[in-house]
Structures are given as structure tokens and as C-alpha cells.
Computed example of a mutant assay.
Amino acid sequence: MSNKPLSVDIVSDVMCPWCYIGKRRLEQALAGIGGAFEVDIRWRPYQLDPTLPKAGKDRRRYLEDKFGGPDGATQAYRAVRQAAQDDGIDFDFDAIEVSANTLDAHRLIRWAGSEGSETQGKVVDALFRMYFEDGRNIGDDAVLIEAAADAGMDRAVIATLLKGDADRAEVRAEIDMAREMGVTGVPCFIIDNKYAVMGAQPADTLEDALREIFANRHTEAGESATGRG
């Protein structure tokens, strides 16, 4: 059991800038581990604002309403801009015209997961990049289909799925489950189905957590084998 890959379930919303930063920091943490042990990444859905319509809302107006005016919105994103710069992400918030409803994006991420963690990771990366760097509306079916195709998924299949309600209820149920588990903000990294690391923690913090949890798993397995666990 101790030799199984260390699972990391990332509860995330693709309209959350800290989630994009968290993804980049996790990648840095994994690079630091350097293959010392295997890590299995799975992306789980969360919606910061499930009330947004399918077409989304004007981004500038949405943020000003949320943060109490232009100054509040600017202040709220100051730390995000600095963190993104430090981690090499080229956010272009001015290019984002629409605050998107991400339910269909999460459906796509779920379908990508059925094709493997690599495909799912590519889709998640494409959606973050499209939204935060290119200003695309990731609630729009055409954009979602493009992200899927870029990750090697079947464009026609995804187009058909998006037209229906496939996995809509399942995604909402997963989001509800995350809230019931106490997830109130994202990203949240659930490691080995036991431990939660909240927020976009520095890469070295994530690396230390992964190493410690993996080491503890081996220790616990050894204690159990000798009758002390």
C-alpha cells in the first residue's frame, strides 16, 4: 500500500486566480521532488459563484460590485498580481471581459479526467491560460471545445456532451460535498485522502508537505507490519 502513488486532489475553480497560482506552485513542488515518489493529481470542482449565468457577467462591473467599487477591486487583486509575477504567470486582467460561470468548464475537466490525469492537467492548464492570460470566456462552449481539442480530446464528442446535461448533477454534487467537508476557499489540496493544505501555499511548503506525508505513510506501514500500528 505504501508504494502506491501519493494522491493529490485539488479542489479548484478555473475562474480563481489563486488556483492558477497554486497550480504553478504545485508544479514547482513536484519538480523539487524530482520523481522520488509518484504523485497522482486529480482536479475536483468548486464554484466561487454558482449564481453567475451561463453567459457570464461584465467582469469590471462584477468585481466592483463584489469588492465595493473600483478601488476595492484594485486592492483585492494587488497581492494576486504580485504573486503571479513572482511565479512567472502573465495575468492580463484587463483582457477579461466576462466573469464566467464555470459549471460547464468543470464538466469538461471531469470528462478529461476519464481520459487520464495527463489529459485532465492539459485541459485545466488551457482553461486557466485562456481565461487569465488571453481573456477568453471559459463559459462559452466554443472556447471549451477548443480547450478540449488542444488537449487531444474529441471535438465532436465534447460538443455533443456540452449540449446536454451529462454530469451536470454529478459536478454539483461534488461541489456540495467539498463544502460539506469544510472547504470554504480554493485551492485546497487534499493529500492521500487524509490531509488538507489550504490556499496557494509556497512551492517549498507544498513540497515539504508531500514529502512528509509520503514518509509518514511508509512509517505507518512499517509499524502496522510489526504489530505496533
Rank of each mutant, 00 (worst) to 15 (best):
M198S: 14
E170K: 03
S117L: 15
G135H: 05
M198E: 12
V143H: 00
I96V: 04
D204A: 15
I96E: 01
K194Y: 03
A149I: 01
F91V: 03
I213Q: 07
D192L: 05
F189W: 00
A156H: 15
D192S: 05
V157M: 13
N101D: 07
T102E: 07
D125W: 09
F189N: 02
A100N: 07
I190H: 06
E146M: 06
E115I: 01
A159G: 14
G182M: 01
E180H: 09
T160M: 13
F189D: 00
P187E: 10
E118Y: 08
V143G: 03
F93E: 00
T102L: 04
N137L: 01
L108N: 09
E133D: 11
L210G: 07
E174D: 14
I96Y: 07
Y131T: 03
T160A: 15
L103Y: 01
A112R: 03
R107Q: 08
Q201C: 12
E170N: 02
M181P: 02
T205G: 05
T160L: 09
V186T: 14
E115M: 10
A151W: 07
A200Q: 08
S114F: 13
V183G: 08
V123M: 05
D208M: 14
T160C: 11
T219Y: 12
I175P: 08
E115C: 10
M198I: 15
E97T: 12
V143N: 05
T205Q: 09
I213C: 06
R110K: 14
N137W: 05
R172T: 12
L108F: 12
D104K: 12
D154H: 06
I190G: 08
S114H: 14
V197G: 06
A203P: 05
D125G: 12
F93P: 06
R136E: 14
R107H: 09
F189G: 00
G139C: 13
V98M: 13
T119G: 09
F93W: 02
G199S: 11
K163F: 09
R217I: 07
S117V: 14
D104G: 10
R172C: 11
V186C: 10
E118N: 08
I213Y: 04
A151K: 05
I158P: 02
L103T: 01
Q120D: 02
D176C: 00
T160S: 14
